[in-house]
Design a protein around this nucleic acid. Structure first.
Length: 873
RNA sequence: GCGAGAGUGGCGGAACGGCAGACGCAGUCGACUCAAAAUCGACCGCCGCAAGGCGUGGGGGUUCGAAUCCCCCCUCUCGCACCA
């Protein structure tokens, strides 16, 4: 055949993604390319890749596109590498926005949610993701949440769930309780309203029972980002110290002592006061007899955690007039204060204050004129002169002024004092955790009902398994504040399953984080009539690669780790860690635009001028170009994926999003970048068109140099792209494919030498397959054009293998340095011997000039890399 | 304050201790066009006419050789933050 190099023709064939993309999506679908069995029927290695499932808020956004593209590249690559790949998708479908829509627009939350799911499913399908759609589910479906109720009841049976009264975070705007994890800087994570403290009866998952294990396991999770592990570590917050009690000189309201937790028991002799959290029972006892104390406590509560944050530096206290005895100093007593900086949630809600060696205690002591008595002497300090000013001494040193601890260092003193406290029976060494149990009750309609019944006679009665699922009623109204389930005329009134007497259903629903704490397990057997089928989860779990945003570093990921352990404890599965590998992607950002009158403008409302300035599209008034920041509706710097896919195709969107930068960093979405990616799809298509479908035979004799070089480029690209995909360096994989396309284009221009078409055929075929994880539709289209009668799709083909013999170039260029500075390059065969290379290096004119008149004292030669002459003088 | 990460052309970014800036975007010039778009070709770190010099946040060090390893410092981003 002859080479018909079509370059630059105006009528060059154009890749029509509008017909190609639906065509290949239908082909994958028809052949069930991405479906796997719950329990394997072959012995291929399993690979479970999953992205965080979306909340069906309306339409997909660019963050989804990035997330699902990343996962899809991995899924397609692993499939080509011979794995049986589980790649599922579903919907995190319960949540407050659905109720807000109901209140604001009078749409039922279920309808709003299912309509959004339909829209978003459609959009995801247009992306050409290699998902097993037969596993799709939504968490708002009783077929899902009924099993969640079963899990809850199982957890209840083994004591991993309990109902207890506690101080909770109350969001006055959303009208619900929030978990600690959902309070950001003292404000509700959704509403942004200052959170109040309330005492309520709530359901708690006993996540603290696994504190030790959740922390210890982080150490071996080497495929998680360091960042996330550290965040979880801090959140779990292990500390070692002592718990001890102080006797009150006079009991109050039946209380005769106060218990504190400290990590510095070695400073016990430096005590000058005891401080209570405002919510502490002893504080309440003091308030009961002293209106001033009550007023102080009320003031603390009114300020709440939110404004307390703003006033963080301001320490406030109230002296109750109570006094406690020191455990070791016979006659010493100390005042008991209520202090706003002591947290009821941590330790025992009470501390002993040692101002000399704790900055907070020192600030407090200075403000209220309390004693400051040093008991740790810094190295080389003079005990007669050492004193503490406005900075507490928290470093190492020798204990003094401390009776039996005198002369010990800090660690030895801690051991000594704990031993003494234990001997006297007034305290003990303990490990303390910052982690709290997970309060999961929410006073909301659009969530999974908590399957218990409250009976006046029997107490809390679990709903019997055979009455599950407890289904949400459809006929609810949103015309008044509060929980519609509670307002419903009949739903909550049921007979007690134990005694048959009239009883009341629990009207709280679960925190939606419960829904997402086990969905990865449900995907393994999504249609089973039990929560999970053991055989299926044992085959597929853990998730080999989980991908999502960093914003879930604590909440979702920690809850899921807990749930997996609890499911193991209740016999549902047999793994501890749900996610063996975790990848956290960066955000998608965009420039923001502002009109002269301050209105934010969408990118499509703005035109860029050649000089870089911007004007409004319909009016030519100037536009201020703002910062590049995360896409958000409020700043209107969003780009609708649906519009991009309609205009450029899914492959272009996928290619650009992968090519821009490393996936863990924030990427900037730009129109120019998308256009560049689109041009590449057309260029690659033209390369294949130019070969015009024939299959070229191998040459009889030795192929020409252009053919040989192209073959080497082909095999080196296979190796390079493989390596890049293995390490998540998708931007590098893209770069290697650009280079490869350039190499193919160059070969095209070579003379019609023997074997060139044959080498081009191999190159293009390889290109179609290497490109397919990123641009699957284009990959199929190229493959079909190269092999019009092919029986298999690229999606069904194995990954190309690089021939090791073709991985090195025929000649290598070696850099020649003199004293570490580059003076020239020489071309030699790979692995050329030292005594052939060094004379050639010296013969290079530039090198010769640099060596002139110098004495070479050392010659460094690293084969295929470098020559370096070290000279004297 | 504590912790984690990052500083490389106009921009995004490449680079087992071995030719810094691959690849893309933007830009410049040229070809093809009546013209434009598209396409194709060439150029594209800084200073310099050139020879050459200088260059990976700054300063030291190790090495024949450092963006890369070690020490000190600076800046930025993110997370946590009264946790006793």
């Amino acid at each position: 055949m002859t080479d018909t190099v079509s370059t630059g023709a105006a009528d060059a064939p154009r890749y029509d993604f509008r017909t190609a993309e639906p065509k290949w999506q239908a082909a994958w679908d028809a052949r069930g390319c991405f479906q796997v069995n719950d329990v394997p029927t072959d012995n291929r290695p399993k690979y479970y890749v999953m992205e965080m499932f979306p909340y069906p808020s309306g339409k997909i956004h660019m963050g989804h596109v990035r997330n699902y593209t990343l996962g899809d590249v991995i899924a397609r690559y692993k499939r080509a590498r011979g794995c049986s790949v589980l790649h599922p998708m579903g919907w995190d479908a319960f949540g407050l926005p659905a109720e807000n829509a109901a209140r604001e627009r009078n749409i039922h939350p279920a309808k709003w949610t299912w309509d959004n799911i339909a829209t978003m499913r459609d959009e995801l399908k247009r992306m050409g993701l290699s998902l097993d759609w037969s596993r799709e589910f939504a968490t708002c479906d009783p077929a899902y949440y009924g099993h969640q109720q079963k899990l809850f009841l199982d957890f209840l049976r083994v004591g991993l769930v309990e109902r207890k009264e506690s101080w909770v975070n109350w969001d006055p705007v959303d009208g619900t309780v929030l978990a600690n994890e959902q309070v950001i800087d003292g404000r509700g994570w959704r509403s942004g309203a200052p959170v109040e403290k309330k005492r309520l009866s709530q359901w708690f998952f006993s996540i603290t029972k696994y504190a030790e294990d959740l922390l210890a396991a982080l150490g071996s999770m080497d495929r998680w980002p360091e960042r996330v592990r550290v965040m979880q570590e801090n959140w779990i917050g292990r500390s070692e110290g002592a718990r001890l009690h102080f006797e009150l000189t006079q009991p109050i309201a039946g209380i005769d002592r106060g218990e504190v937790y400290t990590t510095r028991p070695d400073t016990l002799f430096g005590m000058s006061f005891l401080a209570l959290a405002p919510e502490h029972p002893l504080a309440a006892a003091a308030a009961a007899r002293d209106p001033a104390a009550a007023a102080f406590i009320a003031e603390c509560r009114r300020l709440g955690t939110s404004e307390a944050t703003i006033e963080a530096a301001e320490k406030r206290g109230f002296d109750t007039g109570l006094r406690v005895r020191h455990p070791f100093l016979k006659d010493a007593t100390f005042p008991v204060w209520i202090a706003n900086f002591v947290l009821m949630e941590y330790g025992t809600g009470a501390i002993f204050g040692c101002p000399a060696h704790d900055q907070r205690d020192l600030d407090f002591a200075r403000k209220y004129g309390l004693d400051v008595k040093p008991v740790v002497l810094p190295p080389n300090a003079d005990p007669a002169n050492f004193s503490v000013g406005n900075e507490a001494y928290v470093g190492p040193g020798t204990i003094y002024n401390s009776d039996f601890m005198d002369g010990l260092d800090v660690d030895a003193a801690k051991r000594a004092v704990i031993a003494e406290l234990e001997r006297l029976g007034i305290g003990e060494g303990v490990v303390n955790w910052r982690l709290r149990d997970w309060g999961a009750s929410r006073q909301r309609y659009w969530g999974c009902p908590i399957p218990v019944i409250h009976c006046a006679a029997c107490g809390v009665v679990p709903v019997p398994d055979d009455q599950l699922p407890v289904v949400l009623p459809d006929d609810v109204t949103f015309d008044r504040p509060g929980n519609p389930l509670d307002h419903h005329p009949t739903w909550k009134h049921v007979a007690c399953p134990a005694c048959g007497a009239p009883a009341v259903r629990e009207t709280d629903t679960f925190d939606t984080f419960v829904d997402s704490s086990w969905y990865f397990a449900r995907y393994c057997s999504p249609h089973a009539d039990v929560p999970v089928v053991r055989e299926a989860v044992e085959h597929w779990m853990p998730v080999d690669q989980y991908i999502g945003g960093i914003e879930h570093a604590i909440l979702h990921l920690l809850y899921s780790r807990f749930f997996t352990r609890a499911m193991k404890a209740t016999g549902h599965l047999d793994v501890e860690e749900p996610f063996a590998g975790l990848f956290t992607q960066g955000m998608v950002t965009h420039e923001s635009y502002r009109a002269a009158d301050g209105r934010w403008l969408y990118p499509e409302e703005v035109d860029r001028l050649p000089d870089g300035a911007a004007i409004e599209r319909n009016g030519s008034s100037p536009v201020t170009i703002g910062r590049v920041e995360a896409m958000s509706k409020s700043r209107r710097n969003t780009v609708d994926p649906g519009a991009i896919i309609a205009r450029y195709g899914a492959d272009t969107a996928r290619w650009f999003i992968l090519s821009d930068n490393p996936p863990e960093r924030d990427m900037e979405w730009t129109e120019a970048g998308v256009a560049g990616a689109y041009r590449f799809t057309q260029r690659v298509f033209r390369l294949v068109e130019s070969l015009a479908g024939g299959s070229a035979a191998a040459p009889i004799g030795e192929p020409g140099p252009a053919a040989r070089n192209l073959r080497r480029a082909t095999h080196r690209t296979i190796a390079a792209v493989t390596e890049a995909l293995e390490t998540f360096a998708f931007n590098v994989a893209v770069a290697r494919l650009y280079e490869f396309a350039n190499a193919i284009g160059e070969a095209e221009r070579a003379s019609d030498e023997p074997g060139l078409d044959w080498a081009r055929q191999e190159a293009l075929e390889t290109l179609s397959r290497l490109i397919a994880p990123m641009m699957p539709h284009l990959g199929e289209e190229l493959h079909a054009r190269l092999h019009p009668s092919a029986a298999q799709l690229v999606a069904e083909l194995a990954w190309p293998e690089a021939d090791p013999a073709l991985l090195t170039a025929e000649t290598v260029t070696i850099a020649v340095q003199v004293m570490g500075k580059l003076r020239g390059t020489i071309a030699v065969p790979p692995g050329a011997p030292r005594d052939a290379v060094l004379p050639a290096a010296k013969a290079d004119p530039n090198v010769a000039r640099a060596l002139e008149g110098k004495r070479v004292v050392k010659e460094i030669y690293v084969p295929d890399r470098i020559v370096n002459f070290v000279v004297a003088g």
